[in-house]
Design a protein around this nucleic acid. Sequence first.
DNA 1: GCCTAAATCTATTGATTTTATAGAGTTTAG
DNA 2: CTAAACTCTATAAAATCAATAGATTTAGGC
Lengths: 148, 148
Amino acid sequence: MLSKKCKYAIHALVHMAKEPEKKFLIKDISEACNIPKKFLEAILLELKRAGVLGSKQGKGGGYFLRQDPATVNLAEVLRMFDGTIALVSCAAHKFYEPCAECEDEATCSLHHAFLEIRMATVEMLKNETLEGLAKKELKMKAKKKAKA
Amino acid sequence: MLSKKCKYAIHALVHMAKEPEKKFLIKDISEACNIPKKFLEAILLELKRAGVLGSKQGKGGGYFLRQDPATVNLAEVLRMFDGTIALVSCAAHKFYEPCAECEDEATCSLHHAFLEIRMATVEMLKNETLEGLAKKELKMKAKKKAKA
DNA sequence: GCCTAAATCTATTGATTTTATAGAGTTTAG
DNA sequence: CTAAACTCTATAAAATCAATAGATTTAGGC
């Protein structure tokens, strides 16, 4: 499972990607996405430090996307907040660590199995971009409204 | 990431699946797989309660596979120890729960994205059986030995 | 029957991580 | 100069994870 922090980050980013040019107040994102304001503060700050968001301080300030939402994908966000995507550390790409209990990774069937699963999962996550998610959501909401 | 408990469980099961008819002592599994003995005790007990293992108490006792290792897969073991395989609770199959912050799952892009990812992941995990993993491991170890 | 080997059960501890909040500080528009 | 807004440090509450201790029950073999 994702941490709440990571899920909140994705929610916030997708929300912002619906209007990629707009500047957002923490408070507004917090209310729109139902994320505790103080918690969201820390999250947005992390995203800023990672270069995904930019910000402007003082009156009239706010957060905005610094990167093209088509180039930001879920694999990236997951790794930023939750670390590795792999199910065991010895199958990780960016956060590789040998498993303490394993005597020989080369002949460990789990290592090989989870390596494949990690690679497939990362592929799927890379296909999910902020732009894609935001557009899908706008479309779904429009459809639902039309129905009602 | 899997919990250690879950990873230990899989290690122990694969170890046992290499000799599916044999009866194993906790101590022997613990030493073979480098798992803290007391911790392993609790794990094996859970696997027994779940029906995967059987046991015999007293002198000459031990644990043994109760199910055909070809029918036990990693999806099952993961769910037993770590709960849902999905990355968000609203995308879970066996452990579904709505996300607290989400106002409308039907139009949530994350819900749909993670639903697909969960389904693909479960497919992959289901293809990894105790028998498959054990055989692969035996083969790899034999190959390595032949080389040396 | 008694001894010993082995699984079983209850409880609890310590460490770590996660989630969240408080409050002071800094920046900027007007 | 003041209000609005992000920034930073600190910390606390809660949950989870990993591991251990110690007592109990069961069964085999002499």
